[in-house]
Simulated assay, not measured.
Amino acid sequence: GVAEGQMRIDGYDRPIDLCVKVRIEKDRIVTDWEGTSGLDKKGINVPLVYTKAYACYALKCAIAPEIPNNAASLAPFEITAPVNSIVNAVHPAPVALRHVIGHMVPDTVYDALDKLLPGLAPAQGAGCLCNFQVSLRPRMDAPAPDDAVRAEVLTFNSGGSGARATLDGMSATAFPSGVMTMPVEATEQVGPVVIWRKELRADSGGAGQYRGGLGQYMSVGAREGHEFDIQAMFDRVDHPALGCRGGGNGAPTTIARGDGTPMKGKGKQFVPHGGRVDMAFPGGAGYGEPQERAREAVRRDLALGYITPGFAIEHYGMTQEDIDAVLAQAKRGEEF
């Protein structure tokens, strides 16, 4: 059969539309990216080989995960895209941040595949990595201490992955890249950066029969005597992960100064001495109707702090009596 998948994501200066048509034939699967947005002047364009890699990866994960990758096992997957679309960039198009778009390819393929093979593909997740680079230097608005230094610190972070047809999504776990989140202790050793907060983000996973994976909170600043620029490389600010088969959307990305002043999801931005940047990374979307979620799973989420009482009432229909009982049980240290 044939089915179409779409995804709209933030892009840089304008939204980007990814459009794919998946066609399952007797001896091959064709994915055609006709209708996808054109090139961008920023370096988020994707070479066709990168698009092929992630489209094939999505299909292999879904229908043939046990078969090793080699020329023969990959031969049935055919990927086409218009030249100078954002998923088929040719020289001299800038491509340094290709992952920002390229990592959204699998979930777009899955949007189409779910219409052909229900119950196989997951809901949308955070997609691209939630990376940021901090360029630190001695403060320039006043004398800096003698031990102030210049440093560049790049951190790799993840939002939540989408719920699957039979399992909850994974929290703060990258898909499709598989890149691990960096420990706070390691990050703070490579430069005068301070991670003030790093924790799972309650209510960020989309509600559903199976819940989306949680995103995470991060708050970053600099040691005394430093100012910095932060280079944000985020998506899902304006276009969060969409739920599948009645599941709820994941929470969007937010970024702001410590005083609440909003910041941009992409680009270099200055943070003065004593300032912080507060970030909330996106959650994965839910799969299936929330009313179908097992009551014990909802109770466990509440006890563990994955959802708040308000979320449990709004999305899962829990009563205040139920909530009070769960919280009392959790306070006693009883397992769920």
Rank of each mutant, 00 (worst) to 15 (best):
R211S: 00
A251E: 14
D17H: 12
N84V: 02
L129T: 15
P68H: 04
Q231W: 03
A256E: 11
E289P: 04
D301R: 02
G288W: 10
A251Q: 15
K266A: 00
A285S: 11
D238W: 01
M182D: 12
V49R: 15
A241T: 10
R197L: 14
L74D: 15
G169W: 12
A62L: 15
P47C: 08
V190C: 13
L242Y: 11
D168K: 09
V194E: 01
P252V: 00
R8M: 14
A186Y: 13
I86G: 11
A174Y: 07
V109A: 05
D238L: 05
M233H: 02
Y57N: 09
P290C: 08
S161N: 15
T187R: 10
A232V: 03
V271A: 00
T308P: 06
G258F: 01
A330M: 07
K52I: 14
P176R: 09
Y110Q: 11
P15C: 10
Y110I: 09
V30L: 06
N69G: 00
R211P: 08
I313C: 03
R150T: 11
G159R: 02
I9H: 12
L117I: 09
E227D: 15
L59Y: 03
H91P: 04
P94D: 04
P176W: 01
A241L: 09
R236S: 14
A3W: 05
T187A: 14
D146M: 09
L59I: 06
A165R: 04
A64Q: 11
I79T: 04
R150L: 05
K41L: 15
P183L: 06
R211Y: 08
D10T: 02
L214Q: 10
G1Q: 10
P76V: 03
R139H: 08
Y110N: 14
R98Q: 03
I16Y: 05
T187W: 08
M218V: 13
K21V: 10
A126P: 14
V149G: 08
E188P: 09
G284P: 01
A312K: 04
G258K: 01
P82L: 05
G246Y: 05
P183T: 09
G205N: 09
H99W: 12
T254D: 08
F156C: 14
A112Q: 01
A303H: 03
L117G: 02
N84F: 03
I313M: 12
Y316C: 14
M218D: 10
Q329E: 13
G162Q: 03
R223Y: 01
P65D: 01
M7E: 11
G125D: 09
F234I: 00
Q329D: 13
P143E: 08
A89R: 07
F175L: 13
E152S: 14
G1V: 08
V95C: 15
T155Q: 07
A222L: 00
I63G: 03
F270T: 07
G191P: 14
S135D: 15
V95W: 06
L39Y: 07
L129P: 00
I9R: 14
A81S: 08
T253V: 10
Y57T: 01
A62R: 10
F234M: 02
P309G: 06
V193S: 02
A328Q: 11
Q291G: 03
S161P: 12
S177N: 02
Q6T: 11
L113V: 10
P143Q: 05
P76F: 07
P118T: 06
G284N: 04
Q189N: 09
D278Q: 14
P176Q: 04
L242V: 15
R300I: 13
Y12S: 09
Q320V: 07
P290F: 03
E34S: 12
A53Q: 13
V277L: 03
